[in-house]
Design a binder for these strands. Structure first.
Lengths: 194, 194
DNA sequence: TCAATATTGTACCAATTGGTACATAATCTA
DNA sequence: TAGATTATGTACCAATTGGTACAATATTGA
């Protein structure tokens, strides 16, 4: 149905790159079109307006992460899998010299109150991610690998918050040192509950 | 020297409010001037350009936080002081219905690579905040109130990362639930080191 | 006092913004 | 193949952007 590298796909991917780098407002439609070698015609044809493109970008991001096509996947089955989770985000930051933070965090923070449908789309991805972590912790607890007082949902929330905060602080400080130490503390904490 | 409510002061305060709400790019110079009841003349007179205004806003924020004029101060002297630290940020989010995140986090994430002087200004505030937390943990450890294996710097990093991530996730999910549970876990962890 | 300095207001500018109009070309389908 | 639908390109638009020019007004200090 859809060609391999359709104009629509190129627009979404270019928009993702630019939104990730400079946020929604920092990337103009014209620049996105130039980068994706598309014209205004395609843009208006495939999207109602810029918000429509943002929604497509969020959906695209959610799709590739949920399908595991990206480094930081959420298919934990062992403690080793989990312990590598923070490492993949830290590794990403090192690859990009700490010049970016989380794409969905950046997009989500850029939204205004009149873009609630977009905010909900971003939130739904975070809800899913948190649920994946919580499911993993619940499974480990059911297997007797976590003490009775451990709260799987709270642990999942802690991980998500540290990941988002770590990505943001890495960009601002241009260093993963803070993120790494914080992640280490979380891992120590969770190990102490085993 | 400076009048109580000088045009410069009004411009900085209005800019802070708007940058906090919509980021740097989301707040136009014209809108800031309208809100602060000032003209283009004053703007050009007091600031070189928009970046100059951003720098003034960052300096202003750092000054009021370091001087303790704002709720979330950093003058910890007891465990009770510290345990209320996350609570003040969570309380702020509740006051604003989770429609904002951390002002310096928002500004910091909005910067591009050609604004390195601004990034360094934001970073210097985070460095100071982290150092305040680290000093507190180091003092407690010296007083024998933390186990030998506790790392004051790493604990400070963990707190900063959870605070920033919590503020961001609260805005995106429009709820402090995640932030609260994550903060609780951090407090549990630190208590386990006492 | 009176000139220098600091402050403020208004008008303007080129560039960019998101968005529309509309003609053309390709593709599908009956 | 004919006609509809889908896809693409070009030109244009009003509004907004950050920034400048410059005149006018206070305020200061010798």
């Amino acid at each position: 149905m859809e060609a391999k590298n359709s104009a629509k796909e190129r627009m979404v991917q270019s928009a993702l790159e630019l939104f990730h780098q400079r946020g929604i407002r920092g990337a103009s439609v014209d620049e996105i079109l130039k980068r994706s070698r598309a014209g205004k015609g395609q843009f208006s044809h495939y999207f109602k307006n810029k918000d429509g493109l943002v929604l497509a970008v969020v959906d695209y991001l959610e799709a590739i992460i949920r399908s595991g096509q990206v480094d930081s996947n959420y298919s934990f089955s062992s403690w080793d899998d989990f312990e590598g989770w923070f490492g993949r985000y830290i590794g990403f930051q090192k690859e990009v010299d700490c010049e970016l933070s989380c794409p969905l965090g950046t997009i989500g923070n850029d939204l205004t109150n009149d873009q609630d449908h977009l905010r909900r789309a971003v939130k739904s991805f975070f809800d899913w991610s948190t649920a994946q972590l919580a499911r993993f912790f619940a499974e480990r607890k059911a297997a007797g690998e976590l003490v009775e007082s451990a709260d799987p949902d709270a642990l999942a929330d802690l991980c998500m918050v540290v990941m988002e905060g770590g990505m943001l602080m890495s960009k601002i400080t241009r260093s993963t040192a803070l993120f790494e130490r914080a992640a280490d503390q979380v891992l120590s904490y969770i190990r102490s509950l085993r």
